[in-house]
Computed example of a mutant assay.
Amino acid sequence: MNTPLEKTPRSPGLILVTGATGKVGRHLVQQLVAAGHRVRALSRSPARANLPPEVEVLQGDLADVGSLARAFEGVSAVHLITLGGDNGESLTNGDDLIQLAEKSGVRTATVLGGWDETSVESALQKSAIGWTRLEPVEFMSNALEWAPGIKETGAVRQLAAWPSAVVHEADIAAVALVALTQEGHAGKRYHLSGPQALTPAERIALIAKAVGRSISFEALNEEQERERLRANGYPEDYVEFGIQLATNPPAQAAALVPTVEQVTGRPGRTFAAWAMENAQAFRA
């Protein structure tokens, strides 16, 4: 049993969640509301947000700082993503975004980090905001990419076969909640993994058990993988990136770390649990 980090509660006031309808953001909004916090959510399409009624949902795009003044008004803590715009590209306006946050009274932030740091992290490093970077290995929900093939053919076909310490999105949100509402997390970089490193075949077997049907895994060679990615409409640069990732996975992909339990005080959720929660997505 890992000893949780010392928890010193604070009153964060109004918390803004950006990316509020995303895989992590939606969980974070729900967990903050359940814990009794005041939450404002940022969405590009508020009418389709479908968030708890207690949540104030405002329209805005992180790529357009001019659209964010109202969203940041009165906010003292914020959860940030680093992507924006129509294509989900890395934000390049970090300086303007963080200046707005500081002027609005933001004192605490969490950042859902990606492969590389962006202008958001660079700007935060120069700011007076106490911030925490969340660095998940791979989302469990990436398995939803397999759903069409499972529904149509009862099989998953791909090149990558390496184990990944996939982490539940709700656990990423739980770590963000603690960092936003308790002292002692500013300046930390939290590498986040799930409790097991599982190969695609092992994850597919757990999905099959949850769904109650047989699902097979077929390992492709490199040329077959290129054909699969092209058939799915990916451009050539992404196709080659996919090949490199499948054949040369990052060293930390299978590394298990106890961060979720250390920060939240409870073990991370298993992929078996995730599969049960999402079984309907894989049923024809």
Rank of each mutant, 00 (worst) to 15 (best):
D96C: 08
S67W: 06
L16A: 11
L28M: 08
N50Q: 09
S76Y: 01
A49T: 09
H79S: 13
E73D: 13
V55Q: 02
R26V: 12
V75F: 04
K23E: 13
P46V: 02
P53N: 13
H27E: 12
R38T: 15
G22M: 11
S67K: 03
P46I: 01
D86P: 10
G22T: 14
V75E: 02
L58R: 01
V75P: 00
D86N: 15
A20L: 06
H27T: 04
N87Y: 10
K23A: 14
G60H: 03
V24Y: 04
G74T: 02
L51I: 03
A63D: 08
V55H: 01
I15P: 13
G66P: 07
G22E: 13
K23G: 13
G60N: 02
L62W: 09
L58G: 02
V75W: 04
S76N: 12
E89L: 14
A49P: 11
H37M: 03
L83P: 14
S90H: 12
T21H: 10
G88V: 06
H27K: 08
A49C: 07
G94Y: 07
L80S: 14
D61G: 05
N87P: 09
L58T: 05
A71S: 03
S43T: 15
T21I: 10
G94Q: 10
G19Y: 11
L28D: 06
D95M: 09
A63H: 07
H79M: 09
E89D: 12
L97I: 10
S90F: 11
L83F: 14
V24A: 10
G60M: 01
Q30G: 14
T18F: 00
L28G: 06
L62D: 05
L51C: 00
S76T: 15
A34K: 15
T18H: 01
V33S: 09
S43V: 07
H79E: 03
G94M: 08
G60C: 04
G36Q: 09
V24Q: 15
S67F: 02
A41W: 03
A20P: 08
G66E: 04
G25W: 08
Q30C: 12
L68P: 11
F72H: 07
N87G: 09
L42F: 04
G25P: 14
P53D: 15
I15L: 10
V24R: 03
L91F: 11
V24K: 01
R38P: 02
H37N: 05
L68C: 07
S45A: 13
S43Q: 10
P53M: 00
V39M: 05
A71D: 03
Q59F: 00
L42E: 05
L51M: 07
V39P: 03
G74R: 00
H37E: 03
V55C: 03
Q31E: 14
G74L: 02
G36H: 11
L91Y: 12
V24E: 10
P53T: 13
Q31W: 05
G84Y: 14
L58N: 03
